[in-house]
Design a binder for these strands. Structure first.
Length: 326
DNA sequence: AAAATTTGACCCGC
DNA sequence: GCGGGTCAAATTTT
């Protein structure tokens, strides 16, 4: 691999020197976190509990389809009157108030590759957002009761062409992983991170790193493991997206270690939030999220500065890192 | 067959 | 009532 060259490491070293390096957050599962693990005796709002106690399924007609054959006709349409609102009451679903959940958000060009496997359970077009938001939960949520969840939404930062080339995604992590992470996978290129204790606000710090990194080959819709990271031989292409304005088929994980090796070479970096709110940094210290990047570029001691590191190699714009500190 | 995605409906907080 | 988050049947891919 010609990707990792001495110069790059040099630059990274400089970068690290520039800023007080903070040990990268190890694995999320083992470290203590402010999150409330709610397995078993947890609050009554735990969904697992709801699902377990709620055996009655909501009467609903399904409607997904995706072939050109038009809507499936085999779905028995029930008359509107059939919608019995009463049945739902028997098994109330209690949701945790979003604002009360601890969450962490980050901006990355590669939503996946955070060491965990996620399963998409929903997607929704968000008001005012250009791209839909995808909802994921840990694939171990069922077998291990892992409560970790995350939402991925593509940033609608102007540039059409730019967006296509290096789309950035805001990933919000919620809940705590009670499962074991996939060691072979590494963290994504984190452009920005923000820990929010109270509301999953979008990242708002000024730290910014621009870099590409290996990503999954996407692999369109449906199908298990359709986006295996090993399907992208060339490796360093932008995240494949099934549609221009869609972030579907994103799934991280996969035990392939190919890219993990690349990451271990510290060939990419990520930045922690700017020194902005001290409280935020403190929380970051406690927060032990899924971020497992080998190169941690936390806030710089000096404010109002911007560092740009570029390997200068034409063929590897992926090593271009820009850190802005405010 | 199993696992993952799609996607409209449903639920609930504001 | 609106909008965001979740459910779950249908569908797709492996």
């Amino acid at each position: 691999m010609t990707l990792v060259v001495g110069r790059e490491e040099e630059l990274l070293a400089q970068l690290r020197e520039l800023i007080t390096l903070q040990p990268p957050s190890p694995t999320w599962p083992t470290a203590p976190t402010p999150f409330k693990a709610e397995s078993g005796g947890g609050p009554p709002t735990a969904m697992a509990e709801d699902e377990a106690s709620c055996q009655g399924k909501r009467s609903r007609r399904r409607g997904s389809k995706r072939d050109g054959g038009g809507d499936k006709g085999h779905v028995v349409e029930e008359p509107a009157s059939a919608a019995e609102p009463t049945t739902h009451h028997s098994c109330k679903r209690r949701r945790k108030t979003k604002q009360q959940q601890m969450s962490s958000s980050l901006v990355t060009s590669v939503p996946d590759f955070d060491g965990y496997q996620w399963r998409k359970y929903g997607q929704k077009q968000i008001e005012g957002a250009m791209y839909p938001r995808s909802y994921y939960r840990c694939t171990r949520s069922a077998e291990q009761g892992c409560q970790a969840k995350r939402t991925v939404q593509r940033n609608d930062d102007g540039g059409e062409a730019a967006a296509a080339a290096a789309a950035e995604y805001t990933v919000v992590y919620m809940g705590q992983h009670s499962c074991t992470a996939n060691d072979s996978m590494e963290a994504p290129v984190i452009l920005e991170t923000t820990v929010v204790g109270g509301r999953p606000a979008a990242a708002s710090t000024s730290a910014n790193v621009v870099a590409n990194s290996p990503s999954s080959g996407g692999g369109g819709g449906g199908g298990g493991g359709s986006c295996s990271p090993t399907t992208t031989p060339s490796g360093f292409a932008s995240p494949a997206i099934s549609d221009n304005d869609d972030i579907t088929s994103w799934s991280s994980g996969h035990s392939s270690g190919d890219y993990g090796n690349v990451f271990h070479d510290e060939s990419y970096c990520w930045a922690a939030p700017a020194p902005a709110p001290a409280a935020t940094l403190e929380e970051m210290g406690d927060f032990t999220g899924p971020i497992r990047s080998p190169v941690h570029v936390p806030a710089a001691p000096t404010a109002g500065t911007a560092q740009t590191i570029d390997d200068g190699e034409e063929g590897h714009p992926d090593m271009h890192c820009t850190v802005s500190i405010s």
